[in-house]
């Protein structure tokens, strides 16, 4: 390719690449693209805020203001209610289920179709482990405690909690740490153990709740402005797709590889209590989640279609997932831990 075929794109991030596992795949993917293309394709990483805020990447790519972005699908929830289904939503798919859905069960094609009117080509480009259910000032033991709980919780999970009577706020991230420390709020959700460790929530509150019912996996995508995408030749498109599929494997491996040690460190060294949400609460969360999902399915056809396909796959996969693998908890029982 001569100089005219060179690709030099901005790639805006939704999370800073200093966040372990959650966001450090992006520079790696960019590097692979550069290498595979023999240096003719450069996707330059722009940390959040350098061009636009992480939440605004969708808009900017859509309008062709920036060429591409590596982002969590879901920030465009206000404009595209279906988006969190691709990013990660309550009682959704695990990382490997999500990979199966996107790469083998038509998820990628569905998403391309939905994003095309917004002039975006989305490429599934990374998926990481479950989030935790949040940091609490006290252990959550029963349903009554959820009523009136002052918790910071963004997105659909927040709506579910609201339905259960929780007082949900969306305090700015900038004030989150202090608000938790000083007791302005009782609890907050944040991210995976690796990220939570970096941000130091364990320093102010000690009750870490699991499982991450609200986000069983977090998926990120390479958003490419559709005009820019169409201007690429097949080789270049192939390189982007391949690098992203590699990114999926890389991020899944990296995230899963790191979480265990950090959770152990929380409980063994840092005095954090890892609390499993009581069954009673989880059931109620699931019930309210179904209500929220039904409401959105009613309002939004795309939402209904994707959610339908996802749950169909989840159902189809269930017997295998529950019987094919040694169940979580069995190991601990067997070893008498």
């Amino acid at each position: 390719a001569d100089a005219a075929d060179r690709v030099r794109w901005q790639m805006a991030m939704s999370f800073p690449s200093t966040l372990k596992a959650l966001a450090d795949t992006a520079p790696w993917v960019a590097e692979q693209i550069h290498t595979m293309s023999g240096g003719t394709m450069t996707l330059q990483v722009f940390e959040p805020g350098k061009l636009v805020k992480g939440t605004e990447v969708f808009d900017a790519v859509s309008q062709g203001k920036i060429d591409s972005g590596y982002v969590w699908a879901g920030y465009e929830f206000g404009k595209l209610p279906v988006s969190p289904l691709f990013g990660g939503q309550p009682f959704g798919l695990t990382p490997w289920q999500m990979s199966a859905f996107m790469l083998e069960k038509g998820g990628q094609e569905m998403m391309e179709e939905i994003y095309a009117p917004h002039n975006i080509m989305p490429i599934f480009c990374g998926v990481v482990s479950a989030e935790a259910a949040g940091w609490f000032a006290f252990p959550l033991e029963n349903l009554d405690q959820v009523n009136g709980l002052r918790i910071r919780f963004a997105g659909m999970g927040g709506q579910v909690l609201q339905k259960m009577g929780a007082e949900v706020t969306v305090l700015p991230a900038a004030e989150l740490f202090e608000a938790l420390e000083k007791g302005v709020i009782d609890a907050t959700e944040f991210s995976m153990p690796t990220v939570d460790e970096q941000l130091g929530f364990y320093k102010v509150v000690k009750y870490y709740h699991l499982p991450g019912w609200h986000q069983q996996s977090t998926s990120q995508y390479l958003y490419v402005n559709l005009d820019k995408w169409n201007a690429l030749d097949e080789t270049q498109q192939g390189i982007l797709r391949t690098a992203c599929t590699a990114g999926v494997a890389k991020s899944m491996a990296r995230a899963e590889g790191l979480q265990g040690a950090v959770l152990n460190k929380f409980t063994d060294e840092l005095g954090v209590e890892a609390i499993t949400l009581p069954d009673e609460i989880l059931r109620e969360l699931k019930e309210k989640t179904d209500e929220v999902m039904a409401e959105y399915s009613e309002k939004d056809a795309d939402f209904a279609r994707v959610w339908g396909a996802m749950t169909a796959f989840q159902d189809e996969n269930r017997q295998w997932a529950e019987k094919g693998y040694v169940q979580p908890g069995w190991m601990s029982d067997a070893q008498g831990d």
């Binding site: 808009d59 929830f77 206000g78 404009k79 919780f153 963004a154 927040g158 609201q162 949900v168 969306v170």
Partner: peptide, 23 residues
């Protein structure tokens, strides 16, 4: 102008739970 128009066409609302509509 196009920035606002996009928001209008998509009927953009706050992405926070219980947030304000008509961004």
């Amino acid at each position: 102008v196009p920035y606002v128009r996009t928001s209008f066409t998509l009927n953009e609302a706050s992405s926070s739970p219980g947030g304000l509509p008509h961004t």
